[in-house]
Design a protein around this nucleic acid. Sequence first.
DNA 1: ACAATAAACCTGTATAGACAATTAAAACTA
DNA 2: TAGTTTTAATTGTCTATACAGGTTTATTGT
Lengths: 256, 256
Amino acid sequence: MEYALSDQTTTILEHLFDGLPDVPQPIYAKLKQAISHKISVGEWQTNQRVPSEAEIVNFLGVSRMTVNRALRELTAEGLLIRHQGLGTFVAEKKAHSALFEVHNIAEEIAARGHQHVSKLLTLESARASVEEAMMLGVRTNHGIFRSVVLHYENDIPIQIEERIVNASRAPDYDKQDFSQHTSYEYLMTTAPMTEGEHLVEAILPSETECERLQIAANEPCLQIKRRTWAGEDIITAARLVHPGSRFQLFGHFGRG
Amino acid sequence: MEYALSDQTTTILEHLFDGLPDVPQPIYAKLKQAISHKISVGEWQTNQRVPSEAEIVNFLGVSRMTVNRALRELTAEGLLIRHQGLGTFVAEKKAHSALFEVHNIAEEIAARGHQHVSKLLTLESARASVEEAMMLGVRTNHGIFRSVVLHYENDIPIQIEERIVNASRAPDYDKQDFSQHTSYEYLMTTAPMTEGEHLVEAILPSETECERLQIAANEPCLQIKRRTWAGEDIITAARLVHPGSRFQLFGHFGRG
DNA sequence: ACAATAAACCTGTATAGACAATTAAAACTA
DNA sequence: TAGTTTTAATTGTCTATACAGGTTTATTGT
């Protein structure tokens, strides 16, 4: 049951728990966190081989089933890939699939090799209505910003972005130059998003929206409502409207 | 280590594996599937108490760790809720029915506490056309199945499911009783999905689709095209059409 | 030199047993 | 009766062991 640890393995495992808070937690959870940390800081590179269960067992002096649970759950979460007979490896992608990474329309369009232009239609400082307060999880009359931006891909309208922003977490939102960077880029630097939710629907756009998107009145649109958190606070709530004929959401799940 | 089984428990567990295909599979996976099935068909109601680990152990004659794994994973998937000292219960609904977990419409509807009924419109064995062969990554004239199923939530049409299936990976697809279980359930047991991709669009439905969904001609619909892999093979390609007024996709990302 | 076989690892699953932590109910006490 | 303690049930975690199945490498035989 004893395996010799190679120098390399010892090096890899040596500072496994460095920089992690020592809170009371099950062993398997600590191990998950430690490995997850190694991957997220880039210390363990993509496709790199992770020490085998036996090696971790001998290094930590815990049971194999405990190590197995940690590795198995990290695999289910998409951080690792395991091959019977071969070993465990750092997975290619992050846990989030592409569908959830469609945040920055400018980046998306650039990635397609197209030209992105955005036009700021309205931007105002205001106080939250009852509905807005609910969306942002703040009290009525809490300070907010409202903005409406129209995004173009190669001079064709591709997205209407209606957004309200929690002013206490992004106080300079109204001083931004949205022709230089998108609201998403500013918010990510000011209050890095930790969580979010989406609601995707097919809708018929309003008359105003049809004009802005330059589409027929009966053309279906994809509407995405998105709220993003930083810690406990909701930072922003957005409503994005895309012409159905010009836009698709793509997502991928599983390994690879 | 022996516990007496109450009459009620025996009744609950009696037909645990009824109606499930007997494919070679680990014990914990079979148990997961059986419990998932009980919940999806409404036999085990929301908030109802699930037999304890000890009861299942005595009934099935397997190890507690095996039962524990099944229940733990189902809890992670949001189907069950567990309370230490109390027991295991059928979860209210999928708290965060992630966008990528919306696979089994029957489960989704059951999770909302509603009634699911599906109607098989067409089911045929055929040979792949050029387009179909491309979708499934097989040669033209490769054996496939085509099916069209209409799903109802509380007697209201909620989804048209057009599907083609790789016959060499799911040879008994056309022998299934789709009133007993969904195509998704059969395919998951026959060729467990390892990867998949989605394409979400807003479309105007065809005349036939309007009739089937009982909606107006100009009502926008959410169309989801999905392909799922098992290993290297594409198992199935589906096109799902939902009325925009009756359906939303919800997604959540980040920790939590 | 080449092919077949064996050995060494590695992950996947299953088992039996142990103790901790939590909760509700039962028993006990003032 | 009211409050306290004990007990039983249940889930949560951990260990040690075992065997199956897959993959690579080393060994053996011809």
